[in-house]
Nucleic acid binder design. Structure first.
Lengths: 220, 220
DNA sequence: TGAACGATGAAGATACTATTGATCGAAGAT
DNA sequence: ATCTTCGATCAATAGTATCTTCATCGTTCA
């Protein structure tokens, strides 16, 4: 687990680093925002500990960048400003937790471990790799081949992908894809499902019917 | 989302309750540990907010019980004792987060929302040891192997898991699983029980017949 | 021991789904 | 304006999976 520690007080940074390393983490230190940004462009971190007060700016300002990464690290803010509004602000900005200095290292590690555990759980969300959707052109690429999908086919497939691994009832599908007002037959769904299965090999193999329930698109 | 608020200061409890309800939560209040324990045996909560100082004992003491539940709620400790050791102690005991009074309600809600989101991600698979049942996907895994269950089989098993360790009569099962309107034979339950036992080793060993009463699924 | 109860397996009834082709209407081409 | 093409929907039928019942045999309890 790689951790980015953004902290300019050398003494504190050193103690923290040593403690975390003792717990099996690999810690990289940055003393300024500029340092941190450089490191972020080079390395993928699992977590970032950010001091709010830094020589070249405000710790807040780096949070959006951290959380904008494809697989964002766990972000903890650390500050001596313990005021309520600061905490709310930090959390709303996207920080995962907010520790008031003096930071108790043991507490830091406990909280960190939990968030990292959560993160690995979340991160393992699989996708349907072979399928790529182009919303604008309504074109789907399955593996090598491009396929043209009609409007409803495309929206149906989109819907299944949004609800990967969920068993979806025909009624639910009609409501969400066709719209609440649609008064038609539930068989309509069947027919469109068949279209998708016929056009896309990946759908053929991964879209299962759940008897007496509906359909489920399974991740690979 | 159901929240159990264990707090004896009436004024504080009231304000907190109102705030949470305004955010769409269903809040049940308890003023003592005894109250809380009674409520826990009746209802399944998604989260518990526990004050440490309570009239009839220490808030810590209820945490193991909370976390011992099959599908444990998110547990937040709240206390005016903000000392470092207390926080570490609370977290190590199993509390998910630890708020120091005065609690900022907005912060509470932000943190709560995150933990509840995490919980629902994790919770997809309630289970009995080797038995994992994913309600959303309608998939059952026993040990290594995935098993295909028909609709009624799945719902029956689901029902047994919700009523772990309870002896359930055939009539009760028919009413709750098949529905009030079902007019068929009680032996139908027998047959479905057999199916489950045949398909799932864990069920075979844990689903006991209670002579002259019905069936009971026993926890491992 | 016998009367009540539960387990089991097979088969019929039922409910659900896949598949095909027809119809209708909209968008675009001529 | 008319024709052509394509997509959406529906209806009919064939094909499956599931549910339920029933008859029989084994087991438990009084």
């Amino acid at each position: 687990m790689k951790i980015l520690l953004i902290e300019d007080e050398k003494k504190l940074a050193q103690v923290t680093t040593r403690f975390l390393e003792h717990h099996g983490y690999e810690v990289t230190g940055a003393e300024t925002l500029a340092d941190a940004k450089r490191l972020l462009s080079e390395t993928v971190f699992d977590a970032a500990l950010v001091d709010v007060r830094l020589p070249d700016g405000d710790g807040w300002s780096i949070v959006p960048q951290l959380k904008g990464i494809a697989n964002p690290p766990v972000v903890f803010m650390m500050t001596s400003r313990g005021e309520a509004d600061d905490r709310v602000f930090g959390l709303e900005l996207g920080a995962d937790d907010y520790l008031v200095k003096p930071v108790v290292l043991k507490e830091l590690v406990i909280r960190l471990e939990r968030w990292l555990k959560m993160r690995t759980l979340e991160t393992k969300k699989p996708g349907l790799g072979a399928l790529m959707l182009d919303e604008r052109a309504r074109i789907v690429r399955d593996g090598e081949a491009d396929h043209h999908l009609a409007k409803m086919e495309f929206e149906l497939l989109s819907y299944f992908l949004e609800h990967l691994n969920e068993a979806l009832s025909r009624d639910q599908i009609l409501d969400d894809v066709w719209g609440y007002a649609f008064g038609g037959d539930t068989r309509t769904v069947d027919t469109h499902v068949k279209q998708l299965r016929d056009k896309l090999p990946t759908v053929k193999s991964q879209l299962k019917t759940v008897h007496r329930v509906g359909y489920r698109l399974e991740a690979l």
